[in-house]
Amino acid sequence: MSFQPVKFYQTGTFTVGNRLLPPEERSVQASAKRFNSINSGHRACQGCGEALGARYAIDAAMEATDGQVIAANATGCLEVFSTPYPETSWQIPWIHSLFGNTAAVATGIAAALKVKGLSQNPKTRVVAQGGDGGTTDIGFGCLSGMFERNDDVLYICYDNGGYMNTGVQRSSATPPAARTATTMAVGPEPGNVFGQGKFVPAIAMAHNIPYVATATVADLRDLEAKVRRAMEFRGARYIHILVPCPLGWGTPSQDTIKMARLAKETGIFPVFEAEHGEIKSVLAIRRPLPVEDYLRPQKRYAHLFGKTPALATIAHIQELADRNIRKYGLQARKEGH
């Protein structure tokens, strides 16, 4: 586990805070004085997982650095909904350059801070952030370059499994069978094809960078602990956060966190952390569930649950989840308290 679970206190480890927990055991998000790095008034859709994930992550980074964070942001939902002229939601120094160059822009910022002696005292740190399109596809060259040079940047990918800003098209992070505008639910193999796509956290690990982690918006304490841990390293770090998208996934706006939780509990999305290419901890499944529980509520998988359910496809997805469970050792274990 990436963090010390709260010794039994009703909901301690799972809820954002709890009135009786000592302050040091509460999450950053529980604090009335949290930074709100991304402010109210942003134009994200109702129930946006990315808006939530970004505040979780950047607030945690702000906490870890005493408010000394500069962010570079890829083009995408997060950029568009946060900074349409004449208003910005960001309360931190923030730059948006292009869709595919965020990691490199962050490298430049880090280089500037280093050369000016600002990365040491006060220790201003750089965070780059983008969606899965900006990270796993168009920004991948710059990302890999930043990784291999071990530039002092924390790159955060908010993965919602597609190009949602442009109207829900497929990215290399779109899961198999999912319907997008470019992988329609038609033909003999409706939805996104199996056997394609990439899992960038594993590729990041292959760069042997100091820290790689995955997280979801359903596990706040884990997410915050990972950002905090990432900030303890110098060099290239990568956190890949699953952020459900009500629009693209076809889920009710109130179910954003639930969907992330289901992704983790079914083994669809492995939550782990790795240092220097070695896995150090995984977030075990707490209440094991079949993938169907995760798939069925999402309209992007509606074609799997028609009059004749696509049992073979569902079984195939279950196999992929089972493989994750085996590979990362996600099996449920007894909860200590």
Partner: peptide, 18 residues
């Protein structure tokens, strides 16, 4: 309500006041 801070934390719009 037992003040677990969940509503305060999970709001994507920071629209809960503690």
């Amino acid at each position: 309500c037992f003040e677990c801070d969940n509503c305060y934390g999970v709001c994507p719009d920071n629209a809960v006041i503690k």
